[in-house]
Design a protein around this nucleic acid. Structure first.
Length: 422
DNA sequence: TCTGGGGTCCTCTCTCAA
DNA sequence: TCTGTTGAGAGAGGACCC
């Protein structure tokens, strides 16, 4: 048992995508801004606090968001730009400690236990970080300081600004930094709504409501056995521990990816096998490009199909040797597609690779292994790097508006509206 | 109201081998 | 030889997160 509790920070940029858009176009300041898929099937990826007053939330269908807030500025999003800002954000964090675990573009945990001697107390580091993010990036961050990840995360949530209560109201600034002192974790946690806990989504919440659980305190009062019966052993025990602020998870700086995939929702359902087969090639090509960039191959290839009625199935196959080349991925995924009846109409198609392993490049450069596609893939990567994503790609995609990957960001939150750049 | 795309982790079922 | 046990791995689905 350590005599000194760890000091964990959770840093979260406020309304990240929308804030970047305001940064790049100051005329948007103070207006409701919504970033996401602009087409009929798009969803909200992020929105400014001025939009939240109207009830707009992330993950909400864009059609509904537009109805709730007709005056909003709706933007398709520029993923590359956000990723660039995110890199600078993480650079700022790593200037404090190497123990930074990125959770998303706009969010990270820091273990500053070892930095305290040099840089001051947790709260002092938190305030300094906030200031540097504001000065260097022009963005606002909320920071939670606590002895474990869960409490730090909820503390940063508590530090966030709040939307006003009536349309047109200005947002209310948050505390910016919220500190939960060691020993105060349970008192902080128990009054909070149970839905704030990591792992309590709509389904689990519905189950918990049957036991009258509304707050984290209610959850903590439930016997573990009851929870295990209701939610299963892993989730039951885990949530019970969290409700008592027992969260031993460490900050892990270098988490390796477990899977790499691409999926796409179409503006209209696809019914024809040929069109779907072409899409599988395109998605496989996209996955292959990212696998190669990471120097990885996948042994398991999964095809995901969502039908018009939203029923979703996956079909997967595990092969002996990791594959990374587009044609190899496409062959496996295409075979899986062959076992599926597309006649009800396919809304979404996805291809992903898992069971990842480092690629044995030396063995395959001369085309001796992995189907002989490695050399070709290398050349394709080089041509795309020099001449753009559309410069070269699978022949089957010719006449489909260019063979290559779409630029990152386009369609990232659903199909674009007609007339928008595709 | 009509539901994105990037993922992670867990559970259940089945098969096969020891 | 027959039967039961166990564990690993694959495959499918589901819940959840940002």
């Amino acid at each position: 048992v350590g005599t000194d509790a760890p000091t964990i920070l959770h840093v979260d940029l406020d309304a990240f995508y929308a804030a970047v858009e305001v940064l790049d176009d100051p005329s948007l300041a103070g207006r409701p801004v919504i970033v996401g898929g602009t087409g009929d099937r798009g969803v909200v990826a992020a929105c400014s606090y001025e939009a939240r007053v109207y009830g707009v939330r992330s993950a909400m269908p864009m059609a509904r968001a537009r109805r709730l807030c007709p005056g909003a500025v709706v933007l398709p999003g520029r993923f590359d730009r956000y990723a660039g800002v995110s890199r600078r954000f993480h650079d700022v964090l790593r200037s404090v400690t190497p123990l930074v675990e990125g959770i998303a573009l706009d969010e990270a945990f820091l273990d500053v236990s070892g930095a305290r001697r040099l840089l001051g107390t947790g709260p002092e580091i938190a305030r300094a970080l906030r200031g540097r993010i504001r000065a260097d990036l022009g963005l606002r961050a909320s920071v939670g300081v606590a002895t474990c990840k869960l409490v730090a995360k909820l503390a940063s949530e508590a530090a966030k600004p709040r939307a006003g209560s009536r349309p047109g109201d200005a947002p209310r600034p948050g505390a910016g930094v919220v500190v939960v002192e060691p020993g105060r974790e349970v008192a902080f946690l128990h009054p909070l709504p149970v839905t704030l806990l990591w792992g309590v989504g709509p389904r689990t919440h519905a189950r918990l409501q049957r036991f009258g659980v509304r707050t984290v305190g209610d959850l903590a009062a439930l016997p573990v056995d009851t929870l295990v019966r209701a939610l299963g052993p892993a989730a039951g025990r885990h949530l019970h521990d969290l409700a008592w602020a027992r969260d031993p998870r460490e900050v892990e700086p270098d988490r390796a990816a477990r899977s790499i995939g691409h999926e796409e929702t179409y503006p209209r359902d696809l019914h024809e096998r040929e069109a779907l087969a072409r899409e599988v090639v395109r998605l496989a090509d996209a996955v292959a490009a990212r696998l190669r960039a990471a120097g990885l191959g996948g042994r398991t290839v999964t095809l995901k199909v969502r039908f018009g009625d939203f029923r979703t199935i996956t079909r997967s196959r595990t092969v002996r040797e990791p594959v990374a080349a587009g044609p190899d991925l496409a062959r496996v995924a295409g075979a899986l597609l062959g076992g599926i009846d597309p006649s009800p109409g396919v809304r979404l198609l996805g291809v992903s690779a898992s069971n990842l392993a480092a690629l044995a490049t030396q063995l395959t450069l001369d085309g001796a292994g992995a189907g002989g596609w490695e050399g070709v893939a290398r050349a394709v990567g080089e041509v795309r790097r020099r001449f753009g994503e559309g410069a070269v790609g699978p022949a089957v995609l010719l006449g489909e508006g260019g063979p290559g990957l779409r630029p990152e960001g386009d369609g990232r939150w659903g199909p674009a509206a007609p007339g928008e750049p595709a």
